[in-house]
Design a protein around this nucleic acid. Structure first.
Lengths: 210, 210, 210, 210
DNA sequence: CATGAATGAGGATTCATTCAT
DNA sequence: AATGAATGAATCCTCATTCAT
C-alpha cells in the first residue's frame, strides 16, 4: 500500500486525504473524527495532512463545499426549462430527499449553515465559495418560482425571495423529521417514509399554487 | 419520616445541580460546559454529581425533558378550547418562536431528537418520559387539527397524524432558518425576522385550510 | 514508590510536582522541560498536574516566586543594621553571586523580568506576589543607600531610586559576564571568577562612595 | 569563469535567504520564526535553505555575526583617535543604547553569548568568527582605556582587561534594565529612560576616572 | 543546484469518569 | 451521602529535518 501510493498517487495525496476524511466523517461524524484517524485511514503521517491543509476546518470546509456543489448540480437538473412547475417542484423535493439519504451529515450542515460573518464571505476563499454555491441553490429555486409566476400557476400574492426561503426551510424540515420519525410513522399510521414525504410535499405545494 | 426527609434532601441536591447545569448550558452550550464547571457552580464536588446522576448524559436528558415539559405546557395554553382554529394555529407558531428565542439550545434538540431505539423507550426512565412528552405535544396539535376538521375549516383530504408531523416539521424548519438567515433577509429583501415568520406561517396555513 | 507516595504523601503531591519541576527546570531549562517529563518525574499522570496547577505558567511562576523569596531573605540578612555600608554592600554582592551559582536559571529570570502589565500586578495572584517581592528587594538596597547617605559615606549628588537600579543592574551585569567569560579571563589574564568579581565590585563601589 | 559566476550566484541566494531570516527574526523573534516562513519569504523551497545552510542554527549564527560586525563598526567610530576619553566613553555608551534599540534581539544575544567550548572556537567557522569579532570589540574598549591611562585621566590602580569586562558588563546591565523598567522608573521617580541612562553612565564613569 | 514530499517527535491542555474512604 | 484524588484517552497543531529525484 505504502509503496503503491508513493509510486502512483504522489500528486493525488490531497485526494486521498480528502477521501479518508469524507469516509470517516460519514462514518462517525465530523467532530468525532480526529486528525489521527484521518492520517491512519490515509496511510500517511498526521503532519503530512498539515502539508496539504491548513487545519481541520479547511478539510471540513472543503468537503462541505464539495457536497454543496454536488447538490447544486443535482438541483440544476431538476429544472431543465422551468416549464412544468409541479414536475420541477417534485424533482427538487426528491433530489433533496436523495441527498439527505446519501449524505445525511451534509444535509444537516446545510440547515445549520450559520450566518457567516460578512468579512469572511467577502475575502476570496473556501468560505466565500461555499456562500456562493448557497446563493446559486437559492437562485435555482428562485428561477423556478419566477417562471411559475410567469406561467400563472402560482398564487399572486407570493413574494419571491421570502417564498424561496419558506419552501427551502419547510422542505428541509419535512425531510429531517421524516427521517427521524420513520419508525414511529410506520408503527403509528402504517405510513412509510416515502408516503409521508409525498403527502407532505403535496400538501406544501397547495400553499403556493392557485 | 426520616426517609421522607432524606428524599426531600436528595431532591434538593439534585435540583441545585440541575439548576447549575441549566444555567451553564444556556450560557455556553452543552458541550462546552464541563462537569467541573457544573460542580463549581453547584458548590459541590464533582463526584457528588455522580451520586445523583449516572453521567453527563443523564443531566442533559433531564434538562431536555424539563424544557419539553415547559414547551408542552405553553402549547397547551394555545388551544384553550380549540374553537378558533386560526387563532390557535398562530398561537402555536408564536409559542414555538418564543421557545426558540428563549431556549435555542433545546429548540435544536427538539429537531434532532433522533429515533431512539424502541427498547430504551419502553423501559421506564428519562428517555421514556421524554418520548411521552413528545407524544403529548403531538397530541395537542392533533387535537387542534381534529377540531379544525370537525368545525369544517380544514381541507377534507387531510390525514390527521401525517399532518401533525407535516406542520410540526415545516414550522420548525421555518423558525430555524428565520433565525439563521436573519441578517441575510434584512439585507436582501429588507424583511425582518418577524415579518418573514408571519409571511411563512400565513402561507403554510393556506396549505391546510379550505 | 507509587504505594509509598499514596500512603504518606497524599497531600504533599503539590510539593512533589513542584520539586520535580524545579529539578527538571534546573537540569534542562524551563522551556525544554515538558509537562510529560514533569509528570514522569513526579510519578503521576499528566492530568494530575492540571489538578494542582492551572497550567505550566502557574508552575513556572510559582517556582520563580519561591526563588525570589529565597533571594530576598538572603539579602535581608546582608544588612542587619545598615551600619557598616561597605560590609553590607559586599554582602549583597556576594549573596547575588551565590544565588547565581545555585540558581543560574532564576538569576537570569531576575534580569529578564519584564515590565509586567499593570493590570496583572494589581489583581491578587502569583504575579502580584512576585512583583511585591521584587519591590522588597529594591527596598533592601534602597534602605542601605539611605543609611549610607545618612552616615555620610556616599557621594552627595546621588539620587536614591535611580542609584538602586544603577547598582542592581551593574552588579547583575557583572555577575552574568563573570560567569560567561570565566574561562576566557583565566586564560587571558590569569584571573579567576572570584578575583574578577571582587575587582569589579570594588571598582563599582568607587562610583558611589566619597 | 563559470566557477566564479557560480560563486556569485551562490552568494546571491545565500543573501536572499539571510535577508529573509533577518527580517522575520526582527519581526517576530528567532524562535517564533520557522524555516517554512523563511522559505516563503525568500521565495524558495524549504529544502533549498538546507542547501545553503546546514541548519537553522547556522542561519542564526550568521545573522548574529553580522550584527556583531555592525556593532563593532559602530563602536570603532566612537574612538576616532582616543583623545577625548570621556567623549569616547559616552559615545560608546550611546552606541550600545542605539544598538539595543535597533536590534534588541541581538543585544540580548550579546549578553547571553555563552562560553563556547574551546574546540569550536579553534576550528575555523562561524563560531570562531563570532568569537573574533567579540575580541575586536573588547579591543576597542581596551584601546580606549589604554589611551585613557596614558593620558593620565584614569585611576592608576585600574587593570586593563578586567576593567574592559567590568565596563562592558555594567553598561550592558544598565541598558538592559533601563529598557525593562522604563515604565516603572517613569511612574516611580518621573525619570525617563534617557535620563536614567545618562545618570547611570555618569555615575559609572566616576568609578574609573580620577 | 533545487525541490516536492513526507514525517517523527513532540507539546500543552481538556474532560468525563472511577474509586477508596 | 459525599468527596478528594487521580487519570486515560483524546485533541489539534508545530517544526526542524531528511531524502529521492
Amino acid at each position: 500500500m505504502g509503496a503503491k501510493k508513493k509510486d502512483i498517487l504522489i500528486q493525488f495525496n490531497r485526494d486521498i486525504i480528502l477521501a479518508s476524511a469524507r469516509k470517516l466523517f460519514q462514518l462517525s461524524g465530523i467532530n468525532r473524527t480526529s486528525m489521527d484517524e484521518i492520517a491512519r485511514e490515509a496511510d500517511c503521517s498526521k503532519s503530512t495532512i498539515y502539508v496539504y491543509f491548513k487545519n481541520k476546518d479547511e478539510i471540513i470546509n472543503y468537503i462541505v463545499y464539495e457536497h454543496m456543489v454536488l447538490l447544486r448540480n443535482a438541483l440544476q437538473e431538476c429544472t431543465p426549462d422551468n416549464k412544468d412547475f409541479e414536475r420541477s417542484y417534485y424533482a427538487i423535493c426528491n433530489t433533496l430527499v436523495d441527498f439527505q439519504e446519501q449524505y445525511p451529515l451534509y444535509f444537516e450542515s446545510l440547515l445549520s449553515e450559520i450566518d457567516v460573518e460578512q468579512e469572511k464571505i467577502q475575502q476570496p476563499g473556501l468560505l466565500a465559495d461555499i456562500y456562493k454555491v448557497g446563493e446559486q441553490i437559492n437562485d435555482i429555486i428562485g428561477e423556478l418560482l419566477k417562471s411559475g409566476i410567469e406561467h400563472n400557476c402560482l398564487r399572486e400574492d407570493l413574494e419571491l425571495i421570502p417564498t424561496v426561503f419558506y419552501l427551502w426551510s419547510s422542505i428541509s424540515g419535512i425531510i429531517l423529521l421524516a427521517n427521524q420519525k420513520q419508525k414511529y410513522l410506520k408503527m403509528r399510521v402504517g405510513m412509510d417514509k416515502t408516503m409521508f414525504l409525498n403527502y407532505s410535499f403535496k400538501t406544501l405545494l397547495q400553499s403556493i399554487i392557485k
